[in-house]
Amino acid sequence: MRMTTRRLTELALLTAAALIIFVIELRMPDIAIPGVKLGLANIITVYAVFRYRPGETAMLVAARILLGALFSPNPSTLLYSASGAALCLVGMLTVRKAIPARYIWLCSMMGAILHNIGQMTAAVLLMRTTAVLSLLPVLLLSGCIAGLFTGLCAQMLVTRLYKKPPHDL
């Protein structure tokens, strides 16, 4: 399917919004555990998963991550966030058709867990040690909470911005 100018503009706007959220979150005081984050920019990701085609969503997320690394104080974390985002996206895109709009929060929680698993896999491979693995339960728990929150935000966006139900693509 060809992408219309309208669609491209919407996606660009969403990417910009996600990037702004990402940059604002960078300025917030962080919890001093590597990998633990609220991940507010994922509200846009979850929204796009349920409102746009998989390819479009993947482009949006890729653009957000690459551009986000430019603003990040530590660009070397790009590999971790990219692996996490990739796994998260694949998981959410796989199940999205089977998820009713009122269970988007659940899909988002699953995405957050997959994000943490992807991140941790990258960390184990890059650091060539399983020592970091003991951080995983802390990451998973914080991921569940963050994923629930961002998922509820995305769910409100999906259900309130449009009168028609999602999955009409």
Binding site: P34, L126, A131, V132, S134
Partner: peptide, 11 residues
């Protein structure tokens, strides 16, 4: 035990 000090950039 579940909260090792990790420096990702320097492995």
């Amino acid at each position: 035990e579940n909260l090792p000090i990790v420096c990702l950039p320097h492995q």
